[in-house]
């Protein structure tokens, strides 16, 4: 229903590119319940899916994995070897629960953007990545104060050793701002912006194809429509890769922040 309203939106003879307003400001699914929109439904669905799949895989683990356990163990091994161990070292196993949850949740959120009927990446509403990034940020500050002491944490953060003395006066505010405000902000915005732009791109090219091949089929417009369809197919492949990459980067940055709080730099 939502897809239809988007496709029929540009009234008149001219082709109109989809605007963010009509792509992302979706009406509630149940009229009257204003907060229950498509992204909320998909976020709940993804959470249930992740819990269900990992439950099915690891509820009764076998020594020789088979079926679902085999597949999920592959993902677990990937997170452990590529995300946790390089940044956490010997503390990796303690944080695997959090990192695996974050990685799989963000991955499923993102992949919702290319699943045929659903077709909406949940992370393209900034509230969802912002909450995850805030959780990681709170954890980072808490762990830093716990492991390095209240004063020591800020001293290690704002006064890195090895710089000439008078320049600390100029550089300490930069370090503080970059660690305390810019880092969590870019952590959330990187995921959000990639998903937002990817969804816009896919919607634009599939609308070009639909408009020029089905709505207004003209000899001049048909090649443009073919280009739109081909680009949609190619960009969907690229988008799947980017969605996986962003989930990986989100988990990797989380591991990096946690590792930086556990062990002060140098």
């Amino acid at each position: 229903m939502n897809a239809l309203t988007v496709l029929l939106a540009p009234a008149g003879d001219q082709f109109g590119a989809p605007t963010p307003e009509e792509l992302f400001n979706l009406p509630p699914i149940i009229p009257g319940v204003y907060w229950f929109t498509k992204p909320v439904l998909l976020a709940m669905l993804s959470a249930v899916l992740v819990i269900g799949v990992t439950w099915a895989a690891f509820a009764k683990p076998k020594l020789v994995p088979r079926g679902v356990q085999n597949a999920v163990e592959l993902g677990y091994m990937f997170v452990r070897d590529q995300v946790a161990r390089p940044f956490l070292g010997k503390d990796a196993d303690r944080w695997m629960g959090l990192l695996v949850s974050v990685f799989f949740l963000v991955l499923v959120w993102n992949l919702m953007g290319v699943v045929p009927v659903l077709q909406f990446p949940v992370a393209s509403h900034i509230a969802f990545p912002a909450v995850l990034a805030l959780v990681i940020y709170g954890l980072k500050v808490y762990l830093g104060i716990k492991h390095q002491g209240g004063v020591g944490y800020f001293k290690n953060m704002m006064f890195p050793p090895g710089l000439p003395k008078p320049i600390y006066f100029l550089l300490a505010p930069i370090e503080f701002l970059s660690n305390m405000i810019i880092a969590p902000f870019t952590h959330a915005v990187r995921l959000f912006a990639n998903m937002f732009a990817g969804h816009m791109l896919l919607a634009f090219f599939s609308m070009v194809g639909f408009w020029f091949l089905f709505e207004k089929l003209t000899p001049l417009g048909a090649p443009v429509g073919v280009v739109g369809v081909v680009m949609t197919i190619l960009l969907t492949g690229l988008e799947i890769f980017i969605q996986y990459l962003q989930a990986f980067l989100f988990a990797m940055l989380a591991a990096m922040y946690i590792g930086g709080s556990l062990h002060p730099e140098h």
Partner: peptide, 16 residues
């Protein structure tokens, strides 16, 4: 790890 740390902190330091 050090290398990744350095590269990730470039944009946020410049922005800050």
């Amino acid at each position: 790890r050090d290398f990744a740390d350095a590269m990730w902190s470039v944009p946020s330091s410049l922005l800050a």
